[in-house]
Computed example of a mutant assay.
Amino acid sequence: METHFSLGVVIMAVLAAAAFAEPDIKVMCEKDSVNVLWRVGPQFVPYAARFFLGSCMPSRWTVLPTGEGEAHFNYKFSDCRFIKQFKGKHIMYQNELSFRPQAKPKPAVFKYPIKCVYKRPEGWVPKFLNPGSGASSGRSKLVFHMALLNEQLTGVAKTNVIPLGSFIPIWAAVEQKAHQPLLLLMDECVAATTPELQPGSQVYPIIGNNGCLLESRAGNSMFLPRYHSSAIILYLQSFRFGLEGEVYIHCNLVVWDSNELDQQRKACHVKDHGRWELLDDPSRSSLCDCCDSVCAARNKRAAEWVESHSRSFKTVLGPIIIVEPSSVSNTTSPESGFAFNTEEMAQS
Results as ranks from 00 to 15, higher is better:
residue 60 R to N: 15
residue 60 R to Y: 11
residue 60 R to V: 06
residue 60 R to D: 14
residue 61 W to L: 09
residue 61 W to C: 05
residue 62 T to V: 13
residue 62 T to P: 05
residue 63 V to G: 04
residue 63 V to E: 12
residue 64 L to H: 05
residue 64 L to Q: 13
residue 65 P to V: 10
residue 67 G to P: 09
residue 67 G to Q: 08
residue 68 E to H: 13
residue 70 E to V: 15
residue 70 E to L: 12
residue 70 E to C: 00
residue 71 A to C: 04
residue 71 A to K: 01
residue 71 A to V: 08
residue 72 H to V: 13
residue 73 F to N: 05
residue 73 F to L: 03
residue 74 N to Q: 10
residue 74 N to R: 09
residue 75 Y to M: 07
residue 75 Y to S: 05
residue 76 K to R: 10
residue 76 K to A: 12
residue 77 F to C: 08
residue 77 F to I: 02
residue 78 S to M: 07
residue 78 S to F: 08
residue 79 D to C: 06
residue 80 C to S: 02
residue 81 R to Q: 13
residue 81 R to I: 00
residue 81 R to Y: 00
residue 81 R to G: 05
residue 81 R to T: 09
residue 82 F to N: 04
residue 82 F to Y: 13
residue 83 I to L: 13
residue 83 I to F: 04
residue 83 I to W: 04
residue 84 K to D: 10
residue 84 K to L: 09
residue 84 K to Q: 12
residue 85 Q to T: 15
residue 86 F to T: 05
residue 86 F to Y: 05
residue 86 F to C: 11
residue 86 F to G: 04
residue 87 K to H: 12
residue 87 K to M: 06
residue 87 K to L: 12
residue 88 G to I: 00
residue 88 G to C: 11
residue 89 K to L: 14
residue 89 K to W: 11
residue 90 H to F: 12
residue 90 H to P: 02
residue 90 H to N: 15
residue 90 H to L: 14
residue 91 I to Y: 08
residue 93 Y to T: 03
residue 94 Q to K: 15
residue 94 Q to T: 15
residue 94 Q to I: 10
residue 95 N to T: 01
residue 95 N to F: 02
residue 96 E to R: 14
residue 97 L to A: 04
residue 97 L to M: 07
residue 98 S to H: 10
residue 99 F to W: 07
residue 100 R to F: 07
residue 100 R to P: 09
residue 101 P to M: 01
residue 101 P to H: 09
residue 103 A to V: 13
residue 104 K to T: 14
residue 105 P to Y: 07
residue 105 P to M: 09
residue 107 P to K: 08
residue 107 P to V: 03
residue 107 P to L: 02
residue 109 V to H: 00
residue 110 F to A: 12
residue 111 K to Y: 08
residue 111 K to S: 13
residue 111 K to P: 05
residue 113 P to S: 08
residue 113 P to Y: 05
residue 114 I to M: 05
residue 115 K to Q: 15
residue 116 C to I: 00
residue 116 C to M: 06
residue 117 V to F: 02
residue 117 V to T: 14
residue 117 V to K: 13
residue 119 K to I: 12
residue 119 K to F: 06
residue 120 R to Y: 09
residue 120 R to S: 06
residue 121 P to D: 01
residue 121 P to M: 07
residue 121 P to H: 06
residue 121 P to E: 01
residue 121 P to R: 02
residue 121 P to Y: 07
residue 122 E to I: 03
residue 122 E to L: 11
residue 122 E to M: 11
residue 122 E to C: 02
residue 124 W to V: 01
residue 124 W to T: 12
residue 125 V to E: 13
residue 125 V to L: 14
residue 126 P to K: 00
residue 127 K to S: 15
residue 127 K to N: 12
residue 129 L to M: 15
residue 130 N to F: 07
residue 130 N to K: 08
residue 130 N to L: 10
residue 130 N to M: 12
residue 131 P to E: 06
residue 131 P to L: 02
residue 131 P to D: 07
residue 132 G to M: 11
residue 132 G to V: 00
residue 132 G to P: 02
residue 133 S to Y: 09
